[in-house]
């Protein structure tokens, strides 16, 4: 496979031609924040958190294949501001009560909030009315926390390729729903995978919770992305941010 040279924030990088930018960056020790993206799953670019500038134009790093000589801006004030705003938009769009959420500490959305130093969402909280669904014998689906990242839609299928989860409606009425019939027969293994793949606490296994004690959870002590970055970002410059 052909290797290409490119730059991220003036740092010389090298990757396989056609590799998605997010992966190419990771291989070069550069963390580009993602939320809807999953390694080795077809990207869908829905959260826009991995937005970078490619040769001066906005693009999502999870859907842009790397090409020779690309100049990427990622760690800039402009991009930082956009990503932070996107995270804040999610917090305002749904009902994200971290203190009551089983995934708190292991939640990727929350971890990005920490990384970007979000103290409050600049957008008014919308407090939408959403359903909690328990049709599936193994799962509780709390749509209050759903961020419409499409991870479950993309990854959870039955053997014939039929979807358990799908989008319904569009625009401001867009929701994720579960097939009523298929929910009833979902095997435990599939349910476990569904929970594992959900970046937030929207898909939860029944009859088990809070298995990791506070202090030992994924993002209690380590910042998301720190496993990729050469220097471990343990400390960040927080700010008392005005609304």
């Amino acid at each position: 496979m052909e290797r290409v040279k490119f730059q991220i924030d003036n740092k010389d990088c090298e990757a396989l031609y056609g590799q998605m930018l997010v992966d190419a960056a990771r291989d070069n020790g550069v963390y580009i924040p993602t939320l809807c993206n999953m390694q080795d799953v077809k990207p869908c670019g829905s959260c826009r958190v991995c937005t970078v500038k490619v040769n001066g134009r906005y693009a999502t790093a999870c859907t842009t294949p790397v090409a020779c000589g690309m100049e990427i801006e990622s760690d800039t004030e402009e991009i930082h501001e956009i990503r932070k705003a996107l995270i804040e938009l999610i917090f305002a769009e749904g009902n994200h009560y971290c203190p009551t959420c089983e995934m708190s500490g292991n939640c990727e959305l929350q971890a990005l909030g920490y990384r970007f130093g979000m103290m409050v969402s600049r957008f008014p909280y919308q407090f939408p009315q959403r359903e909690i669904n328990t049709d599936c014998q193994h799962l509780i689906i709390d749509y209050n926390r759903c961020i419409r990242c499409k991870r479950c839609i993309r990854t959870i299928k039955d053997k014939k390729g039929k979807s358990y989860f799908a989008f319904i409606n569009r625009g401001d009425k867009l929701e994720v729903t579960m097939d009523k019939e298929m929910a009833k027969t979902m095997p435990l293994k599939v349910a476990e995978l569904a929970m594992e793949n959900c970046p937030v606490g929207a898909i939860l296994l029944k009859e088990t919770a809070y298995r990791v004690p506070i202090g030992e959870r994924r993002f209690d002590k380590k910042c998301i992305g720190s496993e990729i970055e050469e220097t471990d970002v343990k400390v960040f410059m927080g700010e008392l941010n005005n609304e």
Binding site: C44, G45, S46, C47, R48, A85, L86, L89, I90, A92, E93, F123, P124, Q126, I147, R148, K150, F167, N169, R170, G171, D172, K173, L174
Partner: peptide
């Protein structure tokens, strides 16, 4: 635009609503 957005991109789906509000 809020009504016709496919809803997939957060920036188009959620930000337009905040602007409208």
């Amino acid at each position: 635009f809020i009504d016709e957005s496919c809803g997939s991109c957060l920036s188009c789906r959620a930000c337009t609503q905040q602007i409208r509000n």
